[in-house]
Every structure is written in structure tokens, then in C-alpha cells.
Design a protein around this nucleic acid. Structure first.
Lengths: 220, 220
DNA sequence: GTCTATATCCCGATAGAC
DNA sequence: GTCTATCGGGATATAGAC
């Protein structure tokens, strides 16, 4: 039962990071004190400074821990539909916060980090690197998907990934502020337009494979 | 030279609001103290509390003052191109921060207000109302534009306005973090896809009127 | 209405015992 | 490494003179 000092150190670090992630997502980074993070982790503020040096250090370590974290798992399960349009709908529903509970908290934290990145070079670098990798992955997925479905987008996969992510982000923002303004059908129609899919497929046309899902961001 | 008390009161109020707008845009709302706002306005913090009761009251008054403010002027001058594609490019360049200087500050403030709205019901109501009106105007502009250009989008004007704003917002965000990832051509291509414009017009096809510009947000 | 002065609070960070 | 205790700073908001 007893642990070595290294084990305890590692556990403390993990608990602090977990607590910070939860609290930051719920209340925003600035609204959470170092004491609050430490208390939620069952430690005191001294532990935070011993491990991370400062609150900014804690934030950067948190972002860094996400770089290694899984990026694809969360959205992998949604590709159950057989029609291309249904698959696009699944992509949208994974970014929209219809689950209703906690999926939106991380989106809020994502936006706050983007905002912080705009004024903080350190944060900007981390976020930019992470976004680039996510975009690379997303482009790869999209390339396979467009090929299997047989659409002809007007741009290449890399650029299409940027467009798709932009539309999804913008729609999710508007939906959070005014849910009635962004229907699921509208979102799917927009995605169809970007990927070059005729909104109403002739009758029924089925994709050859149940492709992997397209993702656009990391969530721990 | 001397003013009545009412004039001075009104001027103080205006100066406080102006100072708040500038500072909030530059540094973010939380990073700006009430004292800083008052000092920038040539007053002291007591004036802020006499006028607005609290910092939150100041913020709400600021948002409210924008509701009445001009919403369309800023983007009206860009519709000088003759080709439909050139007009879409003008729309994009007005939201992208190529001007380089201060156009991006308001975008940052917009984003911070959205984030605040997600956690503050009072702010949410103001922002939502303003967005709805902007969307209405934008839809009206888009309706005229699509008619004059002769494109056939897959959705109606109201929904198209949502899609266009979403894409512009998402692209602007990605560009701020990673300018190289979002070329002007890519943005225009995305807009073309949404509005149903073939990316490469047959040869040269000219719109009948130099239509008003499409806008998607208010900027004071 | 506006200013000066101040009350009150909380935060980030540090010092030193263990 | 972790905790306790505390320092120093800056924030919001208030009280009272003018």
C-alpha cells in the first residue's frame, strides 16, 4: 500500500493536473486560484509551486500533457451511419453539445486557450503545434473519406480540413449562444457544400467502407 | 466653454465608455481594473461607481451602447470588385486582420464576450440580441447578392448567413493562431462552396450591381 | 457627481519547518 | 516534496467631504 517517494510525487503531479483541468474547464483559468486547484487535488498550494513553479507553469504543463494524450478516441465511435450524409451528421453531432452535459466544458476551455494564445506567445506555440497535428490527422481522414465516397471537393484534403474545422467551430459557437439558430440540418448542409456532396443524394448511394471518423480537435 | 452639470455628466459617461472599450479590447476585461478605466478617462474610480454601480454594470452599459451604434459602416466600403468572387474576397479581407493594426483587437474582444456570455446570463442576452440583428441584416444583404449574382445556394438566406458567419469566424481564428494555414484563396474557395458559386467562373461574368457588402458582426 | 481615502478581500508567490 | 504561515500587491467597492 505504501508508495515510494517517486510514486507519490507522480501521483501528486497527476492529481494536480487533473484538478486543474476540471476547474479550468468549469470556471475559466483566471477564475480559479492556485489554492483551489491544490485543495481539489488534496494538496496545498506549496505542492503546485514545487512541481510547476507558477500558475502559468501549471497551465503549460497541462497543455503539454494533452499533446501526448489521445486525440482520436473521442470521435471514433460515431461513424456508424452508412450514408455519407449520415456520417457528416455524426461529425457535427460530436462537436455540437447535444449530449447536454459536460461535452461543452472542454469546448469553452478550448476557446479560452485560443484567446489566451492570442496574447501569450508561450501558450500560442503549444496550441499551434497541437492544432497542426490535429489538422494533419483530420486531413488524412478526410482524404480517405472523400475518396471512398467519391465526392470531388474544390480543394485538397489539407485545405479542406481547415475549412471543415472552421465551419464546425463557428457553428458550435453560434449554437451555444443561440441554439435555435443552428439546426442539425443546416450544419450538415454546410458540410455537404464544403466537401462537394450534393445535398440530396440521388436516391440511396452507399459508401463502400464504414470509414473512420473525422476529427478536428483534441480532447483529453 | 463651461458646461452644465448635465453636459459634464454625459461627457464623463461617454469618456468612461470609450476608455473601457479601448482597454478591454487591448488587454481583456479581467485584466483591466476599474481604476485604469477611470484614469484613462481622466476621472477616478468613484465616477465609475456613480454611473454604473459596478464593473459588471460598466460592461453591460458598454455592450448596450453598441446595440444602438452603427453596425454596417465598417464593412460597407469594400465592395468595389466587379466579379462575384472578388466580392467574396473583399468580405474575407474585411474580417481577416490583414490591415495589421487594430482591426484584430475588436475580434479578440468579441471572442472574449462570447466566452463570457457562455458563463454569464446577463452578457449572453445582450450578445445574443445583437447577433440576431446582425444576422438579420446579413441575411438581407446575402439575399440580394445571391439574386444579383445568380447563384443557387443550397439553403435560404437566413441559414446561409449563419453558415457564412461560421466559416468566417472559424477561419479568422485559425489564421490568428497560424497565419500560413489559411490562405486568402482558401477562404474564398470555402465561401464559394457555401454560396454555390463555381470556384472558377466560366470566363468573365459580371454582376449587375455593385451590391452592398455582406457583414457579420458589429464593430463600434 | 466627483474626488480622496480607505475598508476588505483574495490572489500569487515565498520562507522555513518537517 | 509537502505543509503552514505569511508577505506584498492589487482588486472591487464603500464612506464621506466638497
Amino acid at each position: 500500500m505504501s508508495q515510494t517517494q517517486e510514486e507519490r510525487k507522480a501521483e501528486t503531479r497527476a492529481r494536480l493536473l487533473n484538478a486543474a483541468a476540471e476547474l479550468f474547464a468549469d470556471q475559466g483559468v483566471d477564475a480559479v486560484s492556485v489554492d483551489a486547484v491544490a485543495e481539489a487535488a488534496g494538496r496545498t498550494s506549496g505542492a503546485v509551486y514545487a512541481h510547476f513553479g507558477s500558475k502559468q507553469g501549471l497551465l503549460l504543463a497541462l497543455l503539454d500533457s494533452w499533446k501526448d494524450s489521445v486525440r482520436t478516441v473521442l470521435l471514433a465511435e460515431v461513424a456508424v451511419s452508412e450514408t455519407p450524409r449520415g456520417q457528416l451528421a455524426a461529425v457535427w453531432s460530436s462537436v455540437a453539445d447535444n449530449p447536454g452535459e459536460d461535452s461543452g466544458r472542454w469546448a469553452l476551455l478550448e476557446h479560452e486557450l485560443w484567446l489566451r494564445a492570442a496574447r501569450d506567445r508561450q501558450v500560442a506555440e503549444v496550441i499551434r503545434d497541437r492544432d497542426r497535428e490535429a489538422r494533419r490527422f483530420s486531413a488524412h481522414q478526410l482524404a480517405g473519406w472523400t475518396a471512398s465516397v467519391g465526392t470531388r471537393p474544390t480543394t485538397g484534403p489539407d485545405e479542406l480540413a481547415v475549412l471543415v474545422k472552421a465551419l464546425l467551430t463557428g457553428l458550435a459557437m453560434q449554437r451555444r449562444l443561440d441554439p435555435g439558430a443552428v439546426s442539425d440540418d443546416l450544419a450538415v448542409a454546410g458540410l455537404c457544400a464544403l466537401v462537394g456532396l450534393t445535398d440530396r443524394p440521388p436516391q440511396n448511394r452507399r459508401s463502400k467502407t464504414t470509414t473512420q471518423q473525422v476529427t478536428q480537435g483534441a480532447t483529453p
